[in-house]
Every structure is written in structure tokens, then in C-alpha cells.
Amino acid sequence: MINHHPPLELLFDYATGSLPEPVALAVASHASMCSDCRKQVDAVESLGGALLSSIEPEEVSKDALRSVMARLDEPEVGAMRCAAATNRETTEVVPEPLLPYLGRGLAHLAWRGVGRKFDEVHLNLAAKGFKASLMRLKPGAEMPSHTHVGTEYTLVLAGGYKDNGEQYGRGDFALKDSSHEHRPIVDTDEPCLCLVVLDAPVKLTGAMGRLMNPFLRV
């Protein structure tokens, strides 16, 4: 049961195409697990369709049809990377939109231990000013209390955590900005796997935070 969803406006921005790729990745991954949000995206796309059908047509170049027809048999170049063939363990956990960004099974990613609390692997995305990563938080791990200069988008893929009295589990989407100070605690027996997208550095609060800070730079 998914209890935490992206705000409608974020789904709207995803559907109109205005979200930067890392944020779109988090939203698409959530929507692929959440039929309610998927329906919202479909509804926004219907608005786009209605705009397209009601627009005043513009004359196209004279040879446009001929030149497109001539290219119909061309092989497609620069197509979106295909989802890498990976094991079932990975495909059961990783949502479809995220798979191509991993390129290999979860166990074979370049995990990097950060303190004793979590492992992390960075995802390579072209968008500047963002950090996208998979984080695997150990059971019982308590993250240092922190706030954000920008916005943090978190999608839980496995396990779960508690934050400010709220429970987050698989499929839950959390959006935190500078108005939230939060301190997630993993409360499941299995590690908690999350997709985390940041659009500015994390600002740690408290003594433990200052110690952890160098590890969390964007």
C-alpha cells in the first residue's frame, strides 16, 4: 500500500515535460508502481492531446511528407538505452524507468560504503546541479538530522523507514525542502533501498551531521 505520493503539480510538470531528467526519473519510477499517479499523468497528457487537436495548423514544408516517407526504413539511431538484461532479484525491486540507468544487477553496482550506516551508488545523469543516487541504508540505521538548501526527492524501493512519525515503505515518495528538518530511521529487518535525487547540497544539523558532511557533498 503506497501512502505517500508526489504532489499533483509534480505529476503535472512530469507530464508536460518540464521536469529535469533526475526528478522525472523519480516521478516516473513512482508512477510505474502507483496506478493512481499514473492515471493523473494520463489525465494531464489528455490535456496535451486536447491542446494539440485544437491548435490552428501551421503549413509544413512542401517536401516534408516525402522526406519523412523516405526515412521510414532507416534504422533508429540514438534510441533510449535498453534495459540491461539483469537478474530477477533486480527486476523485482527496480522499477522499469530506473532499470536502464543501472545497466547491471543491483549486486554488481559500484556500491561505496559511507560510514557504517549506508552504501551508495551514483547514477550518471547529464543534468547539471543534481545528484541522483541509490542508497542502501542498513537496518536500524539512523540518519543524521538534516535539512535541505534545495529539494530532496526520495523513492523507497525496498525496506522502509520512519521519519517524523510517518512510515515509508516500497513505492512511497517523499519530497523534502528547506522547511523540513528530518531524521529517517530504518525500521525494517531488511536494508532500505531508496532512489534519492537532490537538487542542492544536504545541510546537516547537529554534531553527527558535521562529521558526516564531507561524505554527503553533491
Binding site: 515535460g17 531528467e21 526519473l25 516521478v27 508512477a31 510505474s32 524507468p97 536502464p100
Partner: peptide, 8 residues
């Protein structure tokens, strides 16, 4: 934008 579109 030269970006991919993560697609649902």
C-alpha cells in the same frame, strides 16, 4: 534538452 525521458 539532450536528455532522456524516463518513461512510465
Amino acid at each position: 534538452r539532450r536528455e532522456n525521458r524516463p518513461d512510465v
